[in-house]
Design a protein around this nucleic acid. Sequence first.
DNA 1: ACCCTCACCTGCACGC
DNA 2: TGCGTGCAGGTGAGGG
Length: 303
Amino acid sequence: MPELPEVEHVVRALRRGVLGRQIVATEIHLPKLVSPSSASTFSRKLKGSRIIAINRRGKYILIELEKLNARGRALTNALTNEGATASSLKPATEQVLIVHLRMTGKFMVLTPDDELPRHAHAVFYLDDERRLVFRDQRQFGIMRLAAKSRVGETKGISELAPEPFGSDFNVGYLKETLSRSRRTLKTLLLDQTRVLGLGNIYASEALFRAQINPFRIASALSSKRTERLHQSIRDVLRAAVSSNSSRRLNLEDPKGFSYGEAFGKVWQVYDREGKPCFKCGTRIKRITHGGRSTYWCPKCQRR
DNA sequence: ACCCTCACCTGCACGC
DNA sequence: TGCGTGCAGGTGAGGG
């Protein structure tokens, strides 16, 4: 369910909550979560790793880990004692835990007295007695480990479109991208290899903000509308990232959180079928398109 | 190369 | 109360 803004808030909450902590042990209760790795291999690779950075690429969460191997630690000690040269020091292993929340993935942090909640498929025991838990009701979420230098080559990440707030996602890029597709805008906006960060909610919201019909063919969009769409995509995502309601996401909250509550917003069109458009009063329409619900105002977003 | 459909899961709201 | 149906904010495999 999380789209880019929600993932960004999860990343920030993880930084506040677990950055700098060491993972002393890991339990995987749902093997397919870490497939094709085995649960035991996965856990072994994580053991003793310190969380040194937490970032985001699209809707992927990237948890950077540093692991001093025995030889590295020994040499560090030897170096301190003037017994070794810097060139003989073996660097720490840097790997990245790649996480995708998909529809229902959530992190939470448990204190020692807390009971493990339902659907807790991964439990990371931290060096401060707390546990970082990954829950996922629908079991769609995934976790993978990659060498830090190879994260960008990882399947799923290598194909992603430019970050929506970066300079590479400019009007020229969007024009070029749209011009090569005969799909509808709504469908194209959900394709993370073309436009990054939108999901089913923000795709509808961005199109409403730009006052563009969701079923227009991408390649036929005028320059002017493309510029409006580009701006709207950024506006919608930025507004969600900076919204007050989501700033306080706390992974230690015993009640947990749902993305809907934590990021509670009044959508302009999403989930408002039959309700009056805030702009013109016309009833919002909904149709299933490409297997997903699409909401739009038939007057503000005429074909 | 592109694009569509379906599959992956559980849980919830709804109508009968 | 129970049961069937449809739906849920994401992606990827497989096939046309």
